[in-house]
Nucleic acid binder design. Structure first.
Lengths: 169, 169
DNA sequence: GAGACTGGTTCGGAAATGCAACTTGAGTAA
DNA sequence: TTACTCAAGTTGCATTTCCGAACCAGTCTC
């Protein structure tokens, strides 16, 4: 974990927080897959190792992108929640995925999920961000009322399963 | 330079190309500052060291984000040009900067530059991308005719100098 | 031919990565 | 209460990558 700031440029400062191979993948799993616990995050498709995951979670908490909370019923169960700052990374993660979709050899299964967000445009991202606020911060944290459509994450998951079925069958 | 692919997820694949502390900074200098030569890139505010820069330039060329070309008049002068794939990273870099602007302690001077792009919205990014196509790929590469306004980069630079003057007094 | 300017290399230490095994503490079933 | 499982990490160690400083080999300029 480095401490020194190399310059006051916004791009640089963001990279000092997010610029490595794992940090944004951890956030992707929290945001897109709904992973909230250590073991869930460990099970992501890239097989992050537990020491790296522990390190990144600590860094994300330290930088104010995640909040770590225990559960009084189940004392060894830790839950990680997104903060507003992390939720505001949704457009960035979508851009990252969208660019990958256009320029890199993406697998169909994962492509389907990203295409839902891409085709929905910024309006859908806003709705998704509001769903995340409700889920991670509290029902009062929404900026606008829900339209009543199925949650964005479930639409992404449906698209993923459809692509998976098409590939298998 | 790693070869193995960890998963076919678009976010992961993008991170395998862009996910480190320097790659996007190099692109930022080419895109926002107009740096096209080794020594220009070396002079960026984060003081990248020459071996890292050489390594990242090679990686960017290998991944098809930059093109390296010599100059017949000045044999030791090498010019790096953006490809279409790299130009399509403009929205991503803007998102990165915009998020930094909102959540990190950005310096006024650099903030001014980013605010121009942020407040112009996607329409301005498109115009900027077209200017980059003209500059790096060729005049024919524009998707739409220029509106005749001053180039986006010069507007950013003007805002930066203004902020710098305000700070100095 | 001296000096400066070009795009880099080379070297060695420091830091990050990553695999595997281990740990601690809590819940759970017999 | 003993044994089993699961949750959230640690620890140890080898490998890989990063990166600052110094250096270098060709132009080009005077």
């Amino acid at each position: 974990m480095r401490k020194d700031v190399r310059s006051g440029c916004p791009v640089n400062l963001s990279l000092e927080v997010l610029g490595d191979r794992w940090t944004l993948l951890v956030l992707r799993d929290v945001v897109f897959v709904g992973a909230r616990h250590f073991r869930e995050l460990l099970a992501g498709p890239e097989r992050i190792s537990s020491n790296i995951l522990a390190d990144r979670l600590a860094s994300l908490v330290e930088h104010g992108l995640l909040v770590r909370s225990g559960n009084p019923e189940h004392r060894q169960k830790i839950t990680y929640s997104l903060t507003e700052a992390a939720i505001q990374l949704v457009p960035l993660i979508v851009q990252l995925g969208s660019w990958g979709l256009r320029h890199l050899p993406v697998t169909d299964e994962y492509a389907a999920r990203m295409r839902v967000l891409e085709s929905g445009g910024p309006a859908l991202w806003d709705e998704f961000m509001d769903e995340l606020r409700e889920e991670h911060i509290g029902p009062r944290a929404r900026l606008r009322p829900s339209a009543g459509d199925p949650p964005v994450r479930s639409r992404m998951e449906a698209a993923r399963l459809e692509a998976l079925a098409a590939a298998t069958g």
